[in-house]
Nucleic acid binder design. Structure first.
Length: 953
RNA sequence: GCUCAGAUGGUGGAACUGGUAGACACGCAGGACUUAAAAUCCUGUUCCCGUUAAAGGAGUGCGGGUUCGAUUCCCGCUCUGAGUACCA
């Protein structure tokens, strides 16, 4: 029979499922190995060709490890909460549970078709109440914990309360909000409960905090930066503004230093570690207080009718702006301060003359997203508040400005500007005509740009004049501390993570409110199940969708928290749930201690680098927290991590016309004509585009808002724009693997995805070379069959050449898999089969081992050949990888490349036993070499034994 | 903007520690088989010049450097992709 991949693959997939071939036990005499994939969000578009890339690699690795004698845990599940299902629900009214289930069914069918060796009995879904029960439980542990800096770990909040009761707040070293109270034990005991709870909230690892969000009044909801384009919402094109909101946050900053240090002990790609280090952004510097000039404030007070200002006026003597700087040595070069437009002091700093200008500037800023503000470094903008602050070291009067390049959420929301040393400050100073003061004799050319050098000695710098950088820093810190105007400080760029989402399709937060204060629900009431709502939209009063749930109250009287958890909540601990076997899932723990002790951590984690600073940081944070409380044993969850490159998509764009007021219209212009209009680009589904021409009917039907869309065409067609970018549901450029499997089978898909290139490299999807991989499998099949496709292998002893071919591949594949170079293995398999075909080899002793070596890559065809060879069905997965014997590869001759000045001209065969001097002699005596030398002696001869000969002429 | 990564024939890529650049495939061209097509097999295929065959020369995004020798190391650019805190 010819190679019938359809029947054969179906047969084996069924066999594996029925016999639970890949079900794994939590105990085994074999060493354990845990191979994990980053689990997918089950999008409506189905699995796309990019997903399997990593899954195939991890499956090859898992299968290989089984052949090498390990007990392998290789599970899969679904990160099934998320925005797309909710948006679909808003459009169609269908419950996300329903669509999510349908999507998962599609994913499962697609995954099964590819022949993965997952233990499906351990599947998890983050949206399953039996799963999110434990996500909520972890939230409760975080709420009930504080971070003790003395022990450098999280501890139960009870410990903190005990200390408040016995000693008050003195001596407590904790990670907390900035404004904690000081009190004695007696004062604590007398405090009303409400105030006690307020105080404790400042220490809890999950807590309420005011944060800035993208608010879209027309949609009545908060948008991700992702959903905001050019200041308007991607959906509908409505204006978006920055708004402050009370939100749940996670005190990840408590773990900043441990997250940083942990990176040194894990085997992750360096760029990824570097990204995390940057994200955490530890910087050593100083905080400095610039006191505000009382006169200015007093004048302001006299002018003001706002009584609230009085409370500020009462501590006039202490009014100051605090800044953090890594270059405190430049403090005498400060010629102005810049505070964020949202900074709390801005209303007080603004004088009546400047009021209009400041207010205009603030309203402009509100329209920009944080990303826009950071990205736009070219245009200089800002406004003067009219107030001045004092340099604490020399009393210089310094104007206070606001500018949107300073972000309220970063550090103190204020910076000291040193135009001679910082280019952004220099541009600002140059634009607004502020002084640029040279502070180091090493600074060059500061009339034209800033010079951030630390070289040279200080000038114009008071008591540090003449000192070097190393000398100046301690002197300045000492002086600042004496004056109580500053101190040395370590600051992190990382902010606490916002944990609340104004959405429906996520885990409910297990919190209710009493007298406006948050309390946890009883642990027995878990899971707090997501309630039914009539619509998945915010309420009329702007509350999140959960506000629509009828009679949804804790113990029938208390309001629940209405926001839900973010997408990363469920994925921050899921690898522990996989450790629990299905029988153990009913136990009252995230996973049984015995399972956690057996599996410990993930040995190999494969996933995209796009998770570098999200999922991978939050997971490490939760893992450390769970370890602090003794629920898990490892400080780091993922011992080794490999980044799979992204299979990129080819995105198509349409261009929405923006009207004169800056609002999006429902009119779209073809790519070639877009320059004549003001437009914003919008992704369009690649499945309704062919050869970059948009199918207008399908487009109108795709969303209700598009049903009456108008188009400006070119040559009667709507031509879409094209870009290569990541394949993702939000970019509507998803291609799924089904038709490839239909045409060539799963083994070909597996080999082809590996053959495409190095695992960690990104590349746009194309199917150009797939034929060659398919031909390779047919060629392999033919090795085992005669001309009429009858199975036929010989029991003869192999020749030396055949053994050499076999042992080359045994070694090569082993080396390749261990360094995650799967593409080169596939090429080597082709070479191997080409060689065996040339040798007309059909010997059992060669082919049987070849089948095992190939099994991890192409499990279906090898299972079939394995049983045809007379082995027990299903036993291939647990066979033993053949042992490499180097004797078969020994060569006694080598064709030395002979190069002249580094250019290879010819090869000369020489025995490998020859030493350098003999080689040189042999080469120089050669006639062809003499012809090149043209009678002259070479200046130099370089001989590298077994590699090359180079003659310098 | 900031952080990180990448760039090699018409295409995907190989060259693992500084030692024969283009393995292995795709595509293309020519040929065999066939009434024909598909499938299969064989030959060629970096570019330029040139040829019966040859012999030359250039060449790993661009510009420089180190070295007997650089796709590989160093410096400076260009372009592309990823992340940038509510996509997951």
């Amino acid at each position: 029979m010819d190679y019938q991949f359809r029947d054969l693959e179906k047969k084996w997939q069924q066999f594996w499922a029925e016999n639970q071939t890949y079900k794994v036990d939590n105990s085994s005499p074999k060493p354990k190995y845990y191979v994990l994939d980053m689990f997918p969000y089950p999008s409506g578009a189905g699995l796309h060709v990019g997903h399997p890339l990593g899954y195939i690699a991890s499956d090859i690795f898992a299968r290989y490890k089984r052949l090498k004698g390990f007990n392998v845990l290789h599970p899969m599940g679904y990160d099934s909460f998320g925005l797309p299902a909710e948006q679909y629900a808003i459009q169609t009214g269908q419950h996300p549970t329903l669509t999510t289930e349908q999507n998962i069914a599609t994913y499962r069918r697609q995954l099964d078709q590819i022949g993965f060796s997952f233990d499906w009995s351990r599947e998890v879904r983050t949206s399953d109440p039996q799963y999110y029960k434990w996500t909520q439980w972890i939230f409760m542990q975080l709420f009930n914990s504080w971070y003790n800096l003395e022990t450098d770990k999280a501890e139960p909040i009870e410990n903190l309360i005990q200390r408040f009761v016995s000693k008050g707040s003195s001596g407590i070293q904790a990670v907390s909000d900035d404004e904690t109270l000081s009190f004695t034990a007696d004062e604590w005991r007398l405090m009303p409960e409400r105030q006690q709870q307020e105080e404790l909230l400042k220490y809890r690892l999950t807590f309420l905090k005011e944060s800035t969000v993208n608010w879209c009044p027309a949609l009545g909801t908060v948008l991700a930066n992702d959903e905001v384009k050019d200041g308007v919402s991607e959906r509908g094109g409505y204006p978006v503004e920055q708004k402050k909101m009370m939100q749940w946050s996670m005190r990840i900053t408590a773990y900043a230093d441990r997250l940083l240090q942990g990176l040194d002990n894990i085997d992750w790609p360096d760029p990824l570690k570097e990204m995390q280090r940057n994200w955490i952004g530890k910087s050593t510097g100083a905080s400095v207080r610039f006191s505000l000039i009382p006169d200015a404030i007093k004048k302001k007070l006299e002018e003001s009718e706002d009584r609230k200002v009085l409370s500020f006026g009462e501590d006039l003597g202490e009014a100051f702006i605090e800044v953090f700087t890594t270059r405190v040595d430049t403090i005498f070069g400060v010629s102005f301060l810049v505070v964020a437009p949202e900074h709390e002091l801005v209303p007080f700093l603004t004088t009546s003359e400047q009021k209009e200008e400041i207010e205009n500037y603030i309203s402009q800023t509100k329209k920009k997203s944080e990303l826009d503000r950071m990205a736009d470094a070219k245009t200089v903008s800002g406004a003067f508040t009219g107030s001045y602050a004092l340099n604490p070291l020399n009393g210089a009067k310094i104007p206070v400005w606001i500018a949107d390049y300073v972000l309220a959420g970063y550090g103190t929301g204020a910076v000291m500007a040193v135009p001679s040393g910082d280019q952004r400050d220099w541009l600002f100073a140059n634009h607004f005509n502020l002084p640029i003061i040279q502070i180091l004799d090493g600074q060059k050319d500061i009339e034209h740009e800033a010079d951030a050098t630390k070289e040279g000695r200080y000038l114009n710098s008071d008591f540090i004049n003449g000192l070097t950088y190393q000398e100046a820093i301690p002197a300045l810190i000492e002086r600042l501390e004496q004056l109580d105007a500053g101190k040395a400080k370590i600051q992190y760029r990382m902010r606490d993570a916002i944990f609340g989402r104004q959405r429906y399709w996520g885990e409910p937060v297990p919190v209710y409110f009493k007298d406006g204060l948050p309390y946890l629900i009883d642990e027995q009431d878990l899971p707090l199940v997501l309630p039914e709502v009539d619509k998945y939209l915010p309420t009329e009063s702007g509350e999140p969708p959960l506000g629509r749930a009828k009679d949804w109250k804790y113990r029938d009287q208390y309001e629940y928290e209405l926001s839900t958890m973010p997408g990363w909540a469920g994925s921050s601990w899921y690898w522990y749930r996989y450790m629990a076997s299905p029988e153990e899932r009913s136990e009252n723990a995230l996973a049984p201690q015995s399972a956690i002790e057996y599996w410990k951590d993930v040995d190999l984690y494969i996933g995209g680098s796009e998770h570098a600073t999200g999922h991978l940081l939050y997971s490490r944070f939760w893992n450390k927290f769970l370890k602090d409380l003794g629920y898990v044993n490892e400080e780091e969850p993922f011992k080794k991590l490999i980044n799979q490159g992204m299979i990129q998509g080819r995105s198509n764009f349409i261009y929405r016309i923006i009207d004169d007021e800056g609002k999006g219209t429902n009119k779209f212009v073809s790519n070639g004509l877009k320059d004549q209009y003001k437009t914003s680009s919008v992704h369009v589904d690649v499945n309704i585009v062919e050869n970059d021409v948009l199918d207008l009917d399908k487009f109108r039907k795709s969303r209700e808002e598009y049903s009456d869309a108008e188009f400006i065409l070119e040559n009667g067609k709507y031509i879409c724009g094209v870009e290569v970018e990541k394949m993702s549901k939000s970019k509507f450029n998803v291609v799924n693997p089904d038709d490839i499997i239909e045409r060539y089978g799963a083994d070909t898909l597996r080999l082809y995805e590996m053959f495409l290139g190095p695992l960690e490299q990104s590349k746009p999807w194309n199917t150009n070379g797939i034929e060659g991989v398919f031909k390779f499998l047919r060629k392999l099949w033919r090795l085992f069959h005669d001309e009429q496709f009858n199975f036929k292998v010989s029991n003869e002893e192999p020749t030396k050449a055949e053994l050499k071919t076999l042992h080359k591949i045994i070694l090569k594949v082993q080396e390749d898999i261990e360094r995650f170079s799967f593409n080169t293995s596939v090429s080597s398999f082709m070479i191997c089969v080409n060689e065996l075909t040339d040798l007309k080899c059909n010997k059992r002793k060669i082919l049987q081992d070849l089948v095992i070596v190939l099994a991890a890559y192409a499990p279906h065809i090898t299972e079939e050949l394995w049983t045809l060879l007379g082995n027990e069905a299903g036993s291939l997965s647990y066979a033993t990888y053949p042992k490499f014997n180097p004797d078969y590869l020994v060569e006694d001759e080598f064709a030395y490349p002979i190069s002249f000045n580094g250019k290879m001209k010819m090869n000369l065969n020489m025995p490998l036993t020859l030493e350098a001097a003999e080689i040189e002699k042999f080469v120089l005596e050669n006639d062809d070499v003499q012809k090149y030398l043209d009678g002259k002696a070479p200046k130099k001869v370089i001989v590298v034994k077994g590699k090359i000969v180079n003659l310098v002429v």
